[in-house]
Design a protein around this nucleic acid. Structure first.
Lengths: 232, 232
DNA sequence: AAGTGGTCTAGACCACGTC
DNA sequence: ACGTGGTCTAGACCACTTT
């Protein structure tokens, strides 16, 4: 059967996706190698490569040198979450952003924090702040910043500018990790967030690094009802 | 100054990243066009393209035809979350997976659910189940399945095989959306999950579709302490 | 109108992992 | 050892957008 020529990588991707969805190529099965597919579809191998690479990133197929490509047995779906600056997130909802510093101190961190940030002494800045949307509490954040990595941070008072924003432009991290979870609001958070003590809150914890120097460790507790949303 | 030849796209990416991190190219600034960069680094334009495309996907730079590429002013970080089959997630932690069906019924869904799933009549399967890790409750799930889209689902009793798993191999969705949040455990969930009523739980809600037909709508409530983790 | 990124091609070499 | 995907090249044309 002659397949009409398909020359864009998107159309190759679509064709392969179709063959998988219609179960013409079943889960676990091998699919033709790049050269054969290119010949069949009437395009260059590079184009097929681009299409299959995209499907592989997506988790729909698995590729290994020499072994070839196969349809994933258990397609691990991947969701890409945007982690925007909080101000941008709020402004994106057409709400007015507000920020308030609750507390600023240079102290040495509790052992658990210090260990994770590989820091010594009192070269740490501890910031607690509240972000608001249209005046309503949005998220409470408790942050440690390593002043050994980012000395300039000590010159900032963070009264008007959130540390989130300052760090993003003055000390962009190279990598980090992030964890999502749920926690009950402490009495203090409850008051700040305007909810009951113990109310279930969505939480994000993030640690970021510049090469192998810890930059910041932040725990964010969102007001009840917050949801993080994305497409699959 | 002559830059030594850099011919892999990863090294081009690394070099560009370095120039951004060292603020040689500052946020908001334009960077050279592909042809110039290729000439400077001594490689083909295609290689530069590949590198810059990766940085653009990552959110570190913004690219527009004719306008050129610029360093992102507010780098929107993206995190990719794997959404594995729950069994795989648990087995990946070297724990024994367990599954129990709590309730199975074919009824018409409440209006809120029906509306989201565009369904009519009683062609819906309602399943409530519990997944366990090493015998301990892991996540409670409340799921609606549209039998108009997936008629074969009515032949399954789901006593031993979780709907999650069955759907993944028998009705792979084309797209969907997912929301993460937090909620307090209801009395029933608390008993099943072995926690206090009202305990803060991490929740995932997912709706999936095959082209424009709704497949399933599922609300998962994880046992307290659950965290979803990824790299940045 | 013109400049820039987006993509396709055809060929080539290489790295890796399976056999 | 050898087959497969991973990548680089040089050149070309096109699509989009801004000027």
């Amino acid at each position: 059967m002659n397949t009409p020529a398909v020359n864009t990588w998107q159309s190759v991707q679509a064709e392969v996706r179709r063959r998988i969805q219609t179960r013409l190529w079943k889960p676990g099965e091998m699919i033709p190698n790049e050269a054969d597919l290119a010949a069949e579809l009437g395009c260059a191998r590079g184009t097929v490569n681009r299409a299959l690479r995209a499907l592989s990133d997506e988790g729909l197929i698995e590729r290994r040198r020499k072994a070839g490509s196969r349809v994933a047995l258990h397609p691990v779906r991947r969701a890409t979450l945007d982690i925007p600056m909080i101000r941008k997130e709020i402004e994106g909802q057409n709400k007015t952003y507000g920020y308030a510093l609750i507390n600023r101190a240079t102290t040495s961190p509790p052992p658990a924090i210090g260990a994770r940030m590989q820091g010594e002494g009192a070269n740490f800045l501890h910031l607690r702040s509240l972000h608001m949307a249209n005046g309503a509490p949005y998220v409470f954040e408790d942050r440690w910043i390593n002043a050994q990595t980012v000395p300039a941070v000590l010159d900032q008072d963070f009264e008007a500018l959130s540390p989130n924003e300052w760090l993003l432009t003055h000390a962009p991290y190279t990598h980090g990790d992030i964890a999502f979870g749920a926690a009950g609001a402490t009495a203090e958070m409850a008051e700040l967030l305007g909810c009951e003590t113990g109310a279930p809150c969505f939480t994000i914890e993030r640690a970021t690094w510049i090469s192998d120097h810890s930059v910041t460790l932040v725990a964010q507790t969102f007001a009840p009802g917050y949801r993080m949303f994305t497409q699959l």
